[in-house]
Nucleic acid binder design. Structure first.
Lengths: 243, 243
DNA sequence: GCAAAAGTGTTAAAAGTACACCCATGC
DNA sequence: GCATGGGTGTACTTTTAACACTTTTGC
C-alpha cells in the first residue's frame, strides 16, 4: 500500500471461473457463449464483475458458480488461480480479472437455464489446440488452470474433487490419466495411492458394474497434501504465465 | 466477464511486494514503515496503487521494485503470488491487492533513500512468530510467500535466484537450508543437484575463501523445472490461503 | 467356462541415505 | 602439520516399475 493521498484511477474488477470436470474420460471446461460485444458469440469463461462494496473475492466466485452452473457449493473445490491485468485485455477499458479454479464431479448436463446465453462443457483439448477460439485472454487462463490442476494432482488430494463422495481406485486413476494425458499401470497405481497416508479411506461398501469383480469404495481422507507424492511420469511443470 | 451493461462499483487496485533475500543465512523480507494512517508507524510490505490506465500489473510491480528498493530488474525473479480482496482488509475502503513475490541475491543494505520512510530487511521468523506486527493482512501474504518459495525450491530452479550470477554448490545448499529450515548432507546434496539435468552448469572458475579447498563455480542452467525434483525432507506443502 | 475388472506377489533396477574417506587450500 | 571446507566412493536400505498371477463377478 502506498502512502500518497492522491487518488488513483479506479479499475473494474471481474471474477472469472475455470470449472473443470471429467466427462467421457476427458478433462472438460465449462464455457458460455457471450451475448454482447465485445466478442459477441464467442465462447468465454463464466464470470462477472464484483458485485458490491462488501463482497469478498471468494464470495463473488461462489456467486458466479451458482449463477452460471448451479453446483452445490458443498462438494466442490474452489481456489484462486491468478489475476490477469494486461492493459489491453478488454477493449472496453481497464478490466482486471481474478480467475478462480473450480473442480466438480461429473455433472448431468450443462444446465444452460440460468444466467448465461448457452453454457456447455468443452474438452480442453479443443481449446489448447486452438480449434475453439475464446474471448479475451481466456485461453491463457485455461492453460494456466490446466497446469495448476496437473501439478496439484501430484502433491494434493485434488483428484478426489473430480470424484463422487465415494469412488473406486480406478475412478481415481481415470482422473489422473485424463488430466495428465498418460496411461498408468492399474496395479501399481492401486497400491501407490493406498500407501499415501490419509489420502483415501476405505468405506464398507462395494460397487458392482456389469463385468468383473466388484470394487471397493473409498472416500477422501483428511490429508491436505500427499506424502509421498504421486509423481507425474516424465512430468514437466512449466511455470504459469499470469499477466 | 458478465454480459450486463450495468456499471459495477470500482475498487482500488494495489500492488504489494514480498521481496525475499538471504542475509546471514536467514530468509529475510523487505519491509517499510508506514508514514500515514491507517497503521501509521507499522511495518508493511512495499507497494502502491496501480499507477495509470495503461500500466500492466507486472509493470507496476517492477516500478514499485525500483522505487522502494532499487534492485536492477535484470537479475531478479518476479512472479505473481496472489490477490487479496477481503472486503474489510483496508479500513479506508475497498482495496484489492495483487501481491508479487520477488527473490533477490544478497544486497548491500536496505537503501532507505528513495520513496519509503524506512526500509529494512527483517527475518521472516520474526513475522511468523508474531513478534513483529504488520499492517493490513500482510502477515498472511508473507506466509503465503514463504510457502510458495519453499514449494518452488523443490520443483524449479528458484534457489538460483537467491544467488549471485555464479555460485558454489554450498551457496545453493545454504539457500535450501535457510528457506526450508532444515539441515542437508553436503555430500549427497552436492551430487543430487548436479544430477538434475540443466539445473546448474559448471563455469571454468573457482572461488577461494579463507579456509579449505576452493570450490567450483556454477551458473543457473536453462531448466525451468527440476526433474527429478529436490525433495523437501519430511516436507509438508500446505495450501495457500488467499482471500 | 470365459471374459473382464479387481486385487496380490515377486523381482530386478533405480534412487535415496549414511557415512568413511581423500583432496586442496590457508595458516 | 593441522583445521577446514570441497569432493568421491561405497555399502545399505527403500522405492519404483514391470508383469505374472489369483480372485470375483456377469453372462
Amino acid at each position: 500500500m502506498s502512502d500518497e493521498n492522491w487518488s488513483p484511477p479506479p479499475v473494474l474488477l471481474a471474477v472469472d471461473l475455470v470449472i473443470f470436470t471429467l466427462r467421457h474420460s476427458q478433462l472438460q471446461v465449462l464455457l458460455v457463449e457471450r451475448g454482447i460485444d465485445p466478442y459477441r458469440g464467442r465462447a468465454a469463461l463464466p464470470g462477472g464483475f464484483l458485485n458490491n462494496d462488501s463482497e469478498d473475492l471468494l464470495a463473488a466466485a461462489h456467486r458466479e458458480l451458482d449463477e452460471e452452473a448451479d453446483l452445490d457449493a458443498a462438494r466442490l473445490h474452489l481456489e484462486q488461480l491468478g489475476t490477469y491485468g494486461a492493459a489491453d485485455r478488454d477493449p472496453r477499458g481497464r478490466v482486471v480479472s481474478v480467475a478462480y479454479l473450480a473442480i466438480a464431479p461429473h455433472l448431468p448436463e450443462p444446465t444452460a437455464g440460468t444466467d448465461a446465453a448457452g453454457a456447455a462443457w468443452r474438452p480442453v483439448d479443443a481449446i489448447t489446440s486452438g480449434e475453439l477460439p475464446l474471448a479475451f485472454d481466456h485461453d491463457v487462463i485455461i492453460a494456466d488452470g490446466i497446469e495448476r490442476a496437473r501439478s496439484k494432482l501430484e502433491h494434493t488430494p485434488l483428484a478426489t474433487a473430480f470424484c463422487e463422495p465415494t469412488f473406486t481406485i480406478s475412478d481415481l486413476q481415470q482422473v489422473y490419466e485424463a488430466v495428465w494425458g498418460v496411461d498408468l499401470d492399474p496395479r501399481n497405481f492401486y497400491r501407490k495411492v493406498q500407501k499415501v497416508p490419509d489420502f483415501i479411506r476405505p468405506v464398507d461398501a462395494e460397487r458392482r458394474v456389469t463385468k468383473g469383480r466388484p470394487a471397493r469404495l473409498f472416500t477422501a481422507g483428511p490429508a491436505t497434501s500427499l506424502h509421498p507424492p504421486i509423481p507425474r511420469p516424465g512430468g514437466t511443470a512449466e511455470p504459469e504465465g499470469q499477466r
